[in-house]
Computed example of a mutant assay.
Amino acid sequence: MDRGRVVRRQAAGPVAEAEPPDSVPFAPRPVRAGFVPGAVRARALTVAGEEPSRFRLSATCLTFPPGSRTLVTGLSGSGKTTLARALAGLTPATGGTVEHDGARLASAVERRDSTALRAVQYVHQDARASFDEFRPVIGQLSRTAVLLRDMPADQAYEEVAGLADRLGLRVDDLARRPTALSGGQLQRAALLRAVAARPALLICDESTSAQDPAAARATVRLLVRESEEHGTAVLFITHDSALFAPVAQRRLRVTDGRVEECDATG
């Protein structure tokens, strides 16, 4: 190139200007540093606290590539759930951004469209509060796939029923209202509802706290399967690190709103 012109160059220097091309080749748009196709990324994500000098979540930069599994630990009140809720838009960030595949997601969940809602799914720790108590549970689960994936209702129902079987949930039980199910059953149902969206990032906040050991292990197996077969990035937030550590590929620790990377023994 010479002042924006294409020239033919030999050892002695430019000898002839190239002929103008018949067509201009496609020029791809610049790729931002650190871009990972299909990933969910937090860029300087921040949640302010009541005191100006103290943050509930200090500026945090994280990338969740497709199929990744990340374990987050920390003491109660350290900021683990704040991180999760900020990623999902349930606690609007006061600084920074959340992106999926390079596209910025609104900081508040109310402003996210169906594509953004599907991208990041959050499984609440209080599963019972996340259900409409007047509607059968299985209808609420399959409705997610209908709304966020445009699936026909019958196909969504069959998919949810198949997932339920993997977690030891009977369709007859899910056909009842939430008040008829135990806490452990509702936790597994809440997880299925999020999985039915086929999200890019699935956030599980203490998602096995009400489950017996067998059900908890089934939950972990399902999450690993989703990450491996569907490329879902999974974020485990838990006090029970022994359950999730064997399947996690990365470990983070949150302390006073600061997110730090851990080594294999951290």
Results as ranks from 00 to 15, higher is better:
V72S: 07
G74D: 07
S78C: 04
G95M: 03
Y122T: 03
D132L: 15
P136D: 04
V109C: 05
S76F: 07
A93E: 00
D132G: 12
T91F: 04
R104Q: 14
E99Q: 13
A103S: 14
S130P: 12
T115G: 15
G89C: 06
G95W: 03
R128C: 09
S107K: 13
L105S: 00
A129P: 13
D132C: 13
T73N: 11
R104K: 12
R111G: 11
A108I: 01
V137Q: 12
T94W: 02
R112E: 03
A93C: 06
L90D: 00
A129C: 07
A84G: 08
A127S: 13
R128E: 10
E110H: 15
R85M: 05
T81E: 05
L71W: 01
A129Q: 10
T70D: 04
S114N: 14
T115K: 14
T91G: 04
R111T: 09
A88I: 03
F134T: 15
Q125G: 02
G77H: 02
T97R: 12
Q121S: 09
V98W: 02
A116C: 08
E99Y: 04
D113M: 12
R111F: 09
D101C: 10
L87R: 00
R104V: 11
A88D: 01
R118A: 06
S114L: 15
H100V: 15
R69G: 00
G96M: 01
A84W: 00
A84C: 10
V120W: 11
T91S: 14
A106R: 05
R128I: 03
L83H: 04
T70S: 10
T82F: 05
A93M: 01
A127M: 07
A108E: 05
V123W: 01
S76E: 13
P92Q: 04
V109Q: 04
T81D: 05
V72R: 11
D113Q: 09
Q121V: 04
V137C: 08
G95S: 06
L83N: 02
P136K: 08
A103Y: 13
Q121H: 10
D113G: 14
S114G: 10
G95Y: 00
A127R: 05
L71C: 10
A106S: 12
L105F: 06
A129V: 09
D132Y: 11
K80I: 00
S78L: 11
L83T: 00
A103N: 14
